[in-house]
Design a binder for these strands. Structure first.
Lengths: 228, 228
DNA sequence: CGTTATTTTGATATACTTCAATAGGGGTGG
DNA sequence: CCACCCCTATTGAAGTATATCAAAATAACG
């Protein structure tokens, strides 16, 4: 939680992974965006920006992971989103940031000046569409999370979370602490821990370390998550 | 909850309120949108669309009010949003609607074919910006709601809700039932009712009828809502 | 290896839910 | 206009999932 702002990046332009041949529309969009971005490096727990700061930039995660939080005056916290490589943060800001974003682990992010993004969109309307699509996806994720927070029990919440963290494959490395998970699921660390144990006891998952989850029975996990 | 789809509108074009003189940017945008829309009338509890339906349209409320919900297989429900005149619904759909929208009271809505909206945006990029702004506002509202659902107690939830329902003025007519409020705040009807009584007991609000709230002490309500 | 932070487990407390009954409001028909 | 009914809201009593408080176990780290 170092209160420092993002330190000056090593000033290198991002080299797009795809450079030649027929670019897909998505790749072309990404490349156009990346021309106006600079890379910023963050150390674990370093803050990228704080709720209330003037919102000059938006960001894309290149490596590592971030958490985006909102706070109540008395310190209660909610983690809106965990951002992993490819994810954007602060797309939804107006004049100021509406959340605080910190690095879960050492991370690199691409920083885009929002004014430049606006200009780019005016020149290339298809970028606007791609941005709208991202906002829609974020909004739908938020709606799923509201259903989770409003109506699911602890077991269902954790099952949903684990499935969201590993779209495919049966192995998840969780870059966040139990505390972060608790603040994302509207629970306490103790309940999160007990619920991990419960899933383990049912033979649905296995924990090699506390942050290394093996999904043994994805079908069972899905049944729990969707209350089917 | 009539399972009928929106019946055929009375086929009249919406006449923009402002027709002459220098239109503001926002008014001009609205007028452009309204040229591609038709008016649809809904009776109380009539469904506008159902979760999973192909999403051909998006909508703007003209009069009355709507609720937008998500359901779990076993019937648990979360109300994402209450939409009142001027609010849009289904802006965030992709191929299918991700929520079910019904009328809280008799209502009229403007229906816009999404393909036509896309075309209009290509012609007038400023419309795209206005749409993005709306999506951002929705996303920020969703984030505030996640904090509410994850970390606030019943009293704080209801206080936040009442403030959201009456941006200004001290009088709120609630067009929704206690059940709808409960499903929006992640509580039960009984808890919502008890919490209304508690706010009444503290002299913060007064209830002339169960749906007619008078805010006696807005400052107190704000303190409760923000846990200050 | 000792030291500290994190996670897990245990025991108790509590806010909210659930189940149950009563009260109020609005409409309809006598 | 009143009486009745239905639906929604309110209030009460008991139960439960999760929070809180406390301690032990495990992992991280110099």
């Amino acid at each position: 939680m170092t209160p420092l702002h993002s330190h000056q990046p090593t000033a290198n332009r991002f080299a797009p992974a795809v450079v030649a041949g027929a670019l897909s529309a998505a790749a072309a969009d990404a490349a156009a965006f990346d021309c106006i971005g600079t890379v910023v490096s963050l150390r674990r727990d370093q803050m990228l920006f704080f709720e209330g700061d003037p919102a000059q930039y938006c960001f894309k995660v290149l490596s590592g992971a971030l958490r985006s939080c909102r706070l109540l005056p008395d310190g209660r916290r909610h983690v809106n989103q965990f951002a992993r490589p490819g994810d954007f943060v602060a797309l939804d800001s107006d004049d100021v940031y509406r959340s605080t974003v910190e690095a879960l682990s050492d991370a690199r992010v691409m920083r885009y000046p929002r004014r430049a993004v606006e200009q780019l969109i005016q020149q290339q309307p298809r970028l606007g569409k791609s941005l709208r699509r991202r906002l829609c996806a974020d909004l739908q994720a938020a709606q799923a999370q509201m259903l989770l927070l409003g109506r699911k029990n602890a077991l269902e919440r954790l099952a949903s979370f684990l499935l969201a963290m590993c779209e495919r494959g049966d192995h998840v490395a969780l870059p966040m602490t139990r505390n972060d998970i608790a603040d994302h699921l509207g629970l306490t660390i103790e309940t999160v821990s007990r619920t991990f144990s419960q899933l383990k006891g049912r033979g649905v998952i296995e924990l090699t370390t506390s942050s290394d989850v093996l999904i043994k029975r994805r079908d069972a996990l899905e049944d729990i998550a969707e209350a089917a």
